[in-house]
C-alpha cells in the first residue's frame, strides 16, 4: 500500500471536515470508503494532524463494528444474522459460506477475493434469509443456493 497516498487521503479528508474533532467517525468512514479498511498509517495521521491521542483514534476505530483494521477482500459477503434471518436458518447459511470459502466469519480468503462478515439485520427482514454481496441484496437464500452464488463471482474473476 502506498504510504504517501494514504497520508494524502487522510490529510484531505481531515481538511474536508475542518479538523473538527466531532467528525472523527465521519473521517474514518470516508477513509474506509476509499480503502475498504482503515490503514494504520491513516490512523497515525489523524492522531497527529488533529492532535488527538492515537489511543483515542483506535478506541473509536475498534468500538464501531463497521470499521476494519484488516484489509478486506475484493468482494464483501455479509450474512444477515438478524432475528428474522436467524429464524429462517441464517446460522446454517453462515456455516455453509464458511465451509465453501474455507474461512471463518470476519476472515478473508487467501486469494484476497472474499471477506465474510456477519451483520445484524440489513433491514430487509421480510426477505429473510438475506445475504448482501458487494452491496447487492440476495433475498430468500437457501444453503443450496450458495455454491451457485459464489461460482458467479469466481467466474467473473477468471474473465
Amino acid at each position: 500500500m502506498d504510504l504517501k497516498a494514504i497520508t494524502k487521503t487522510a490529510r484531505d479528508t481531515i481538511k474536508k471536515y475542518n479538523r473538527d474533532h466531532s467528525q472523527i467517525i465521519a473521517i474514518l468512514q470516508d477513509i474506509q470508503g476509499v480503502y475498504n479498511y482503515l490503514p494504520k498509517e491513516a490512523l497515525s495521521v489523524i492522531s497527529e494532524e488533529m492532535d488527538v491521542p492515537l489511543s483515542r483514534v483506535y478506541e473509536i476505530a475498534t468500538f464501531y463494528n463497521s470499521f476494519s483494521l484488516k484489509p478486506r477482500g475484493k468482494h464483501m459477503i455479509e450474512i444477515c444474522a438478524g432475528t428474522a434471518c436467524h429464524v429462517q436458518g441464517a446460522a446454517n447459511i453462515l456455516d455453509r459460506f464458511e465451509r465453501e470459502l474455507g474461512i471463518k466469519r470476519g476472515e478473508t480468503t487467501q486469494d484476497g477475493l472474499f471477506t465474510l462478515e456477519e451483520v445484524r439485520c440489513l433491514g430487509c427482514c421480510s426477505l429473510a434469509a438475506v445475504v448482501r454481496l458487494d452491496g447487492n441484496i440476495y433475498p430468500f437464500v437457501k444453503q443450496d443456493d450458495i455454491p451457485r452464488i459464489l461460482k458467479k463471482y469466481k467466474k467473473q474473476e477468471v474473465k
Binding site: A81, G82, T83, A84, C85, H86, C124, C125
Partner: peptide
C-alpha cells in the same frame, strides 16, 4: 439507528 434486528 434502528438497531433491533428484525425491524425495519
Amino acid at each position: 439507528d434502528e438497531g433491533d434486528p428484525g425491524a425495519y
